[in-house]
Structure formats: structure tokens, C-alpha cells
Amino acid sequence: MSIFIIGEIGINHNGDLDITKKLIDGAAEAGADAVKFQKRTIDNVYTKEFLDSPRESPWGTTQREQKEGLEFGLEEYRQIDAYCREKGIEWFASAWDLDAQDFLHGFDLKHDKVASAMLTNTPLLEKIAAKGRHTFISTGMHTMDEIAKAVEIFRKADCPFELMHCVSTYPMADEDANLRVMETLRERFGCNVGYSGHEVGLTVSVAAAALGASSIERHITLDRAMYGSDQAASVEMGGFNRLCRMIRTVEKALGSPEKQIGEKEQAIRKKLAPVNG
């Protein structure tokens, strides 16, 4: 089974469809399988007090103006949907509230995503699982018992899923990756396990692929110096292209668990075999 590679656009588009299309172009050219966004209903996710509080941003001086500046609506997602189909790449998104999930269910998508922060939001998980789309479930910031409760919801609904090992620091230090948890999750829950990374470099993600990740998700950006809270934990498009190539190389190199002597090696064996062997 091929590793499913996801370019996480998230909110790195900064509310700009031109930036979004360039990120989709880059992900498609790199050979990624999908791009992913984040969808919020602002007044459901945040309190009025928080939204009215001050925050300087390119869109104004309040938290509301900043949050609304980063949020795409129906027309933008219709354009994203059409553009991804044109480019031959899938898209999906992680919802942060029930209305946002209803919004996403209005599109003919193959996948859903549970963001780490939403792992214990039982009504949201039940809504996602009831739809029955293959769901990627990120596990950052949560205990094994909390993960088990989420898994139970998806198994009860007979909804296909895979877990994604994740460490929710932005950016994540390489030494905090704890990739061996991937095997722990596989053994405990008997399911595929991917990796959602927030590190700066590429090595940890390549290592996750070598350890059997079923999916790899990385935030992507046009420029890590751009405005935005996720930009510093993202990979620029040149790096993402290299990452996709390395993951595909790892897939080929992993091969089969069966010990084999191929035609090329047979020829060398014949050449180097001892005379009286």
C-alpha cells in the first residue's frame, strides 16, 4: 500500500485564493495525494469576548478580523474543489465545530480529518464517523485512553479510519518526535498509523515512512517568513518536493519481508561463488 502524502495548507493561504492555488500547484507537482485545509465557524469556536479582544493583523485590529480574514466560505471552497479536480489532487479539511463539518459534508470528498485539538469532541467525532468517509485521526496532546475512546466511536459506526501520530508543538524539535509510538498505536489498536509532523526539516518524516507510516502529513507554505502562526512549522515547496521523492524512494527500498535473491544478485553470486563451493 502506497503512503498517502498530504500537503497541509491549513490557514497558510492567508485568505488568498492565489496563494492557495500556488500551494495546490506545488503539492500536485510534488506528487502528493491530497491537500488539506481547516474549517471553522468563527462564532461557534470562539467566544464573543475573545473575538472582540485586540489583535493586530493584516485584516484589522481585533481577533475577529484576523480569524475572519483567514476563513474561506462557500464560494472559495467551490473554487478550491474545482481547481483540485483540474489538477488531479484530492482535498479535504479538518472541521473545528459541527456546522463546519456539515459544510464539508456538502462536498463530494473521500476523506475527513480529526485535528488533534478535536480528539475529545465526542459530538464532532460521532458526526464525522456517521458519514463513513475514511478519516485521519491525529493524536497530539492526548493519552492512550482518550485515543481509545475516539477509536471506539469510529469502530462502532463502522467508519474506516487511521490514526496519525503527532506531537503538537510548532515547530517540533526533532528529539521530541517519539516515532516509536507509531508501533505502540498499531499494536494497541490494530489499525494503520500515519504521521502528522510539525518539525522544520525532512528527516523525521522520512524516518516515519521507514517505520511503516501509512500516511505522512506536513504543513506547506510558499515562504516560512510569511504572516501566520503555522508558517514556521511548515515546509516550503522545494523542500516538500524533495520530501515526496524521498518518501517514494523509502517505499521502494522497504520491499518485502521475504528474503529474496533477485536476478541481479544471482549474477553476482555466480561470479563470486568459490570454485569448490
Rank of each mutant, 00 (worst) to 15 (best):
E71N: 11
H111N: 09
H105M: 13
R78P: 00
L119K: 04
L98P: 12
A157D: 12
H142V: 02
Q63T: 00
Q101H: 15
L104F: 11
N121G: 06
G73V: 09
V151F: 12
E90L: 14
A117C: 10
H134W: 12
Y77R: 04
K113N: 03
T135Q: 00
A130E: 14
G106M: 03
C84P: 01
R133I: 08
P58F: 05
T135Y: 00
E76Q: 15
T61K: 09
F92S: 05
L74H: 14
H111S: 04
G73K: 11
P123L: 02
D99T: 12
F92I: 10
D102H: 13
A115R: 03
H142R: 07
G132R: 07
L125P: 10
R155N: 15
G69C: 12
Y77H: 15
P160T: 04
T122K: 13
T139R: 06
P160F: 03
A148F: 02
A150S: 14
F103C: 08
I80L: 07
N121T: 12
K156M: 02
G140I: 01
G132W: 09
R133V: 08
E152L: 09
A115M: 02
A117Q: 08
F107E: 02
A130H: 06
K113H: 09
W91P: 05
M141C: 03
G73S: 12
G73E: 15
K113A: 03
Q63W: 05
I137S: 03
E76H: 05
E152V: 05
G88I: 10
S94P: 14
E152S: 14
A115F: 01
H142K: 09
H105E: 14
D81I: 03
E75L: 11
L109A: 10
I128V: 14
K113G: 04
Y77T: 05
I137W: 04
T143M: 05
A129N: 10
L124T: 07
L98F: 05
A95H: 10
V151Y: 13
L109S: 08
E152P: 02
E68R: 13
R64Y: 14
P123G: 07
G132Y: 09
D112A: 12
E76P: 02
H142T: 09
T143D: 15
Q101I: 12
F136T: 01
A157N: 12
F161T: 07
L104G: 11
A95M: 06
T62V: 03
W91M: 09
L104C: 13
E65C: 04
P160N: 01
D99V: 00
P160Y: 01
D145H: 08
H105D: 15
E75C: 00
M118D: 13
I128Y: 02
V151Q: 13
E71C: 05
H111C: 01
D102N: 14
R64T: 03
I147M: 12
I89H: 00
A95N: 11
L124A: 06
D99N: 07
L70C: 11
F72I: 08
L104P: 11
L124W: 09
F72D: 04
C159Q: 08
A82C: 00
K113L: 05
D99M: 00
K149A: 15
A148N: 08
E86I: 00
W96C: 06
D97K: 02
G60A: 00
M144W: 10
R133D: 04
I128K: 07
D158C: 01
Y83T: 05
L70M: 14
F136R: 06
F107C: 08
R85M: 02
H134L: 12
H134N: 08
S94H: 06
S94D: 11
